[in-house]
Simulated scan of single mutants.
Amino acid sequence: MSPPDALAGVAVLLSYAWLAAASVVLTVVDVRTHRLPDRVVLPGYAVGIVLFAIAAALTNDPGPLLRAVVAGAALFTGFLLLRVVNTAGLGGGDVKLAGVLGLFLGRIGWDAVLTGLVVAFLIGGVSALVLLALRRARRSTALPFGPFLLAGAWCGILTAVVVA
C-alpha cells in the first residue's frame, strides 16, 4: 500500500471512529431525552466531508466522496419530506442525523445506504410492535428513532465490511 493510500485509509478510519463515539452519545441522549443535539449531530457533516475529501485527494478518486454527498443529501431530503408529511413522526434531529448517516453510508456504497435504511425501519417497527404487544407502549407513545437509525447504519457499515 502506498503512503497516500495509507493516509487516505487513516482519514476514513478516523471519520468512522468519530461516528462510533457520536453514536454512543446520541443513543444515550435520545433514549433519555428524545433529543438529538445539534452540537453532536451537525459536526458529523464536517467530519465526514473533510476527511472523505482528504481521502479523495490522496487517492485521486473523488467517486466515494461524491457518492457520500449525494447519499447524505438524499437521506436528508427524504427524511425531511417524511417530517413535513407527518410532523408528529420524525423529529428535526432525526432528519439531520439521517443526512449524516447517509454521508457515512454513501462513502461505502449504495448497498450500505439501503441496508442501513431498511434495517433502521425494520428494528424500529419490530421494537414498536413488541412494546405494543407487551402493553409497554400505546400507538400514541413517542419512541426515539435515533437509536434505530444508528443501529441500522452500523448494520450497513458492518455488512459492507464483512461482505468485502
Score class of each variant (00 low, 15 high):
Ala112Phe: 04
Lys96Ile: 01
Ala22Ser: 14
Val47Trp: 04
Gly89Met: 04
Ala46Thr: 15
Arg83Ala: 10
Val47His: 03
Pro37Glu: 09
Leu103Met: 08
Arg107Cys: 01
Tyr16Asp: 12
Asp38Ala: 13
Pro4Val: 09
Val41Ser: 09
Val163Met: 06
Gly152Leu: 14
Ala142Cys: 00
Leu82Pro: 04
Gly152Cys: 12
Leu82Ala: 15
Val119Phe: 02
Phe104Asn: 07
Pro43Leu: 06
Leu158Val: 14
Asp30His: 02
Thr159Gly: 14
Val28Glu: 07
Arg139Thr: 15
Leu103Pro: 02
Val28Leu: 13
Ala68Trp: 05
Leu134Asp: 03
Ala73Tyr: 08
Leu75Gln: 11
Ala73His: 04
Val69Trp: 02
Ala128Pro: 03
Leu105Cys: 10
Leu42Arg: 12
Phe148Asp: 01
Val41Gly: 08
Asn86Gly: 00
Ile123Glu: 12
Leu13Asp: 03
Val10Glu: 10
Val31Asp: 01
Arg83Val: 10
Ala11Cys: 14
Gly91Phe: 01
Val119Trp: 00
Gly102Pro: 07
Gly48Asp: 12
Thr115Ile: 15
Tyr45Gly: 11
Leu134Val: 13
Gly63Trp: 07
Trp154Ala: 11
Val85Glu: 06
Val118His: 01
Thr87Trp: 02
Pro144Asn: 08
Arg135Phe: 01
Leu26Ser: 08
Gly72Lys: 06
Gly78Glu: 14
Phe121Gly: 08
Gly93His: 07
Ala151Trp: 04
Leu149Cys: 09
Gly152Glu: 12
Thr141Leu: 04
Ala88Glu: 12
Gly156Gln: 10
Leu114Tyr: 09
Ala137Asn: 09
Ser23Gly: 13
Thr141Asn: 00
Arg138Ile: 11
Arg32Trp: 08
Asp30Cys: 08
Val162Gly: 06
Val31Asn: 07
Pro147Ser: 11
Val126Gln: 06
Val31His: 08
